[in-house]
Amino acid sequence: MTESIPLTWEEVARVYGRKIYNFAYRLTGNQADASDLVQEVLLRVKKGLASYQPGSFEGWLWRITRNAFLDEVRRKNRRPTSPLPEEIDRWDAATSPAADVEYERVTLGEDIQKALLELPLEFREAVVLCDVMGLSYEQIATAIAAPVGTVRSRIHRGRKLLRELLT
């Protein structure tokens, strides 16, 4: 299937920047690393656009993103790191009933994010690509360079682990 592709790097940044950031945030769990990852991805996109072969543009884009993420993980594993600051805003639960509801929502979001970060990388990326980015199994297969059957298995096993982590 051929998709229309953005013609310029600026258009990729404008159209996909927010999606790349959300993918990056759910993979890394913090704003600073996610921002760095977006910049790295956009630079790789800029370099790679000239040689891009028409096909699944999003599959290509998410493959670049996950590869940049994996490279960063490998780089960090080679050197000691300091603990990352907690960047999710805290809510004062006692202010109002509406704040209570919002607090529950934010807390649930934090719990899910923490559980996502505890998943093995191959399960985390499959679940995020499916449930956060909304990709089809075929697009995910392109992004992670694996057969659709592997995608199916990783998503299910990832959700099963999440379920155990959240209970």
Partner: peptide
């Protein structure tokens, strides 16, 4: 499985922090 799928899908889409795109390529 449906519950956990719904929970992950309910995560909010966050805004792109300002400045990321221009900082990504200060030359271009």
């Amino acid at each position: 499985t449906q519950h956990v799928r719904t929970a992950v899908r309910s995560l909010p889409m966050m805004e792109l922090p300002g400045g990321i795109v221009s900082e990504a390529d200060p030359v271009v």
